[in-house]
Design a protein around this nucleic acid. Structure first.
Lengths: 390, 390
DNA sequence: CTGTTAGCGCGTTCAC
DNA sequence: GTGAACGCGCTAACAG
């Protein structure tokens, strides 16, 4: 492993000269520069990252905290990880992938050991413990997911607008009765932002368009979800008289059983393949928050999760947070402070609102089909074959 | 940010003592150790990774090279990335995610700057340029994917055995005519290992069981794939008389059109949702290399890609390669060598075979159904509803 | 201006 | 248990 000294020797100059050639932070004569460059190439020299970091206190690395539920795997997480890495590279940063099986432990370790300059937190929840930990450490952080009261930059799809848009599109296509498959019950109970906002969007669009929107809280158990869905669709499951107050599947408006719904707006997509299998072919299905290029939904009208835009945005926000934290250091800081004094708003002016990036929803795929009568068991799904997407 | 000196001062000892307490590489009296630990806790001290690396030449970071085709995204890649990161953490390593849009550039940069101790290469191809680059740099590397002649450790699913097993299962269930949807044409033309081995497995099982196996080379274009598939299945697409020598969909055995196939073994799964939509319900479909927990295939007999096992294995191989490269350094190396001298087998004995880990395939899901007559347009897919997987 | 010298950043490790 | 050298690159101050 060649060092800067080897290069200097070979080029017949001082190590500092090599450094200046590399950083360009000073003018070096053409001759010298050529000699140095030649030596660098011949030796295959590359500055040691650790040495550079030791001096500059910059790693050019961003830690990416991927949410992790032990047994499960969410396809969207891997996708974001890769897209964010691409985006970060565009800013000159590498990405350290943190799988937070250990909770905040990993992030804290990376922050305190100076392995990274900042972090991106995926799938942020209300009162996320990771946020508190990182703020306490004064670690520059950007969030992938809505965050109203933690004072950190974030980006997110506008879930409220997204669900509202889907319902409006259904209404515009002539659907008068729509089922909204909301997030899973446990997500709603945990008051997850996207879950609540989705519900708001549905209610709002229902009121606005006069459409009847039946809200079904989803469930991680396929069987439970299926039961609720069939009931809301006015399906087989006939008994269990209305005298029994089934608590969960609550009707959005006053429950007037005015006929079977003709459209399904679905925000909870984990079980989408099953849903599509179980649901009658004539039902118009509109997924909200689907993955771009997901072949399972390509021929449905839908609102894709803007993965690329969110990734680009969150990478940019993280870089800005890092730069901002590093920049405002005109005078050298005083002596070593007691532990945990880094929370005060050290910004120049009054505490600036952290930036955020709320992404408006966009419809993709074919137009929403108008309501169709439930022809029992005849034509198999049209146009779902092996034709390329128009 | 507290340093080791701060800790030493507070504990009333020398910095070296603190270091020894931390590393445990030397005996320290109980009293001193307690004092040091107290000081560490009070100051919230954590050693700076860059300083440690600068001395020890170890980063405890593994670079993970994720394959990247500009426009596309493969769900399996993100999944491996996350699983490998989990596995690496189990060995005390962090993972730097490298999206190789820049080809070998990124890896070379990381290796030469000492940002990582070693690398894991995903989706290795024959004569992968990344392998050559990393070998030249003497960078410890493990491969996710078969690799017969690059002398590097690797792990992979036994694709040959997998396809053979799927065909044998079909045969055992009574299917006499099977279609094998091989890898995509361009993958076969590029002589990708898994593609060729899959073909071998199909041929082998065909010969062994006496089953007629029609091989269809897949295609990235859904339309092309659909055409080939329908033709092989003895489907609509009737014209284009056999006089025209359609080059691609070649028959496995001597082409005796002895009736419609009743089973489909599919190795090319990118377009699987489309395929399942387009194929008649009575056809037994057996995906090979599907993602575990993929809801789209949960009710099919299949051979899952052993993502967890492969991830664990490749992480272990990488760690072993790193350890091996760091260990055998009894005497200090001579002076600075000319660039590119690191290829010689520096092992102790004669060049040891690099270890590998070939994973035998296993069937998942329900048993393969026996052949069924093509009842045109009647019962919709059985058992594909919203019931939990048994 | 262009190039050099020197000290720093921080933890590790060998010799006393 | 301690002192000091060391790993490597950056950069302020200084010399030509």
């Amino acid at each position: 492993m060649a060092t800067i000294k080897d290069v200097a020797e070979r080029a017949g100059v001082a190590p500092s000269t090599v450094s200046y050639v590399l950083s360009g932070s000073r003018k070096i004569s053409e001759d010298t520069r050529r000699a140095v460059r030649a030596a660098i190439d011949e030796l295959g020299y590359h500055p040691r990252a650790s040495a550079r970091t030791l001096r500059s206190a910059r790693t050019d690395v961003i830690a990416l905290a991927v949410p992790r539920v032990p047994g499960e795997y969410r396809a969207v997480d891997g996708r974001f990880a890769i897209d964010i890495t691409d985006a970060a590279r565009g800013h000159g940063y590498d990405v350290l992938l943190m799988t937070d099986l250990d909770g905040v432990g990993g992030l804290r370790r990376v922050a305190r050991s100076g392995l990274a300059d900042g972090a991106v937190l995926m799938a942020v929840e209300e009162d996320d413990p990771r946020i508190a930990a990182l703020r306490e450490l004064g670690f520059p952080t950007a969030l992938l997911g809505h965050d109203d009261h933690a004072a950190l930059p974030w980006t997110d799809l506008d879930w409220e607008a997204a669900v509202a848009l889907a319902v409006r599109e259904a209404a515009a296509a002539g659907h008068r009765r729509v089922v909204f498959l909301a997030s899973a019950e446990h997500e709603i109970d945990a008051r997850r932002g996207y879950a609540l906002r989705g519900l708001d969007g549905a209610r709002q669009a229902a009121a606005e368009t006069g459409t009847e929107v039946r809200v079904v809280e989803s469930h991680r158990e396929p069987a439970v979800l299926g039961r609720r869905l069939r009931e809301a669709l006015g399906y087989p499951c006939p008994s269990t008289g209305s005298g029994v107050p089934g608590p969960r599947p609550s009707a959005g408006s006053s429950a007037t059983p005015s006929g079977a719904p003709t459209a399904l707006v679905a925000q909870h997509l984990t079980l989408l393949p099953h849903i599509l299998d179980a649901v009658p072919g004539h039902l118009a299905v509109i997924p909200v928050g689907s993955l771009p290029d997901d072949l399972g939904v390509r021929n449905l009208p839908r609102i894709d999760l803007p993965v690329a835009e969110m990734s680009t945005a969150v990478a940019r926000l993280a870089v800005e947070a890092i730069t901002a934290a590093a920049g405002p250091r005109p005078a050298a800081a005083g002596g070593a402070a007691a532990p945990g004094t880094a929370n005060a708003p050290t910004g120049s002016a009054l505490t600036t609102e952290p930036p955020h990036h709320l992404i408006p929803p966009r419809m993709s795929g074919p137009a929403v089909a108008p309501p169709r009568a439930p022809k029992p068991d005849s034509e198999p799904e049209p146009d779902s074959g092996l034709e390329p997407d128009p």
